[in-house]
Amino acid sequence: MAHAEKLTLSASLEDYLEAIYRIVAEKQVARAKDVGRRLKVGRSSVTGALHALADRQLIHYAPYDLVTLTDRGREVAEGVARRHEVLGDFFVSVLAVDPAEADAAACKLEHAVSENVLSRLLEFIDFVDRCPRGGTHWIQGFKRSCHTDKRPGHCETCLARAVNGVQAKHRKETHMDTNGEKKAGATLADLKPGGKATILTIGGAAGGIRRRLLDMGVTAGTRVEVERVAPLGDPIEVKIKGYHLTLRKEEAARIHVERS
């Protein structure tokens, strides 16, 4: 019987259920007027829909009372919301569609898409993000080709970049594996003048100094070269992203690097 009811849930009722789910997630409880405002429909339509959902035991509802989801209602609503999010995410981050447009399209498609298609879509998003031939850079390229630039080219640089990325990632992983927590790897402070390295991570608390280092371009994968040490032994001067930066050894010791 439950199965039969799930099939008979119309697209519009699914929308109502999803709306209630989101309102509850934000405010703990939903009122009929919140639902109406969210879906931009009149009071009477809301009352009708709420009755229909209550009949299917998806929500607890009595006129003028708060609306809450039943366990089964939450389950169904979560499914709808998830389909919406996955589709929206795919449109925005893979197809580079404008977020508002993506949201509207996801809202329509969410009622039709099957569970299997959905999980494939999820896997695909994940794959694009993980695969060195894909990745955000690749998607950026797609976005650009949609808007302006139809010409091919840059294929070599793009591929070289992908290979570099794989190698850097590999290095980073092996670095983590072999050194682990106890035996820390090399830091920028360990480098002698003339020493070159690639940055792996920046340790230390959030905000403050790490924030500043990140803003100055000291990010993972960036190449860095120690130029000199100040006459009194501290601070040091490094060359990074084509400019000169000076920092104390204390700060340099937070920057984990891979020597090259």
């Binding site: 955000t136 840059h154 959030a206 990010t219």
Partner: peptide, 23 residues
Amino acid sequence: AGDSAEALIADRRYGFISGACQE
């Protein structure tokens, strides 16, 4: 991700820039 959100965000921003500069 094994790295802080702020580091990842800065990484991505710089990634976008270096992509643009490379081209």
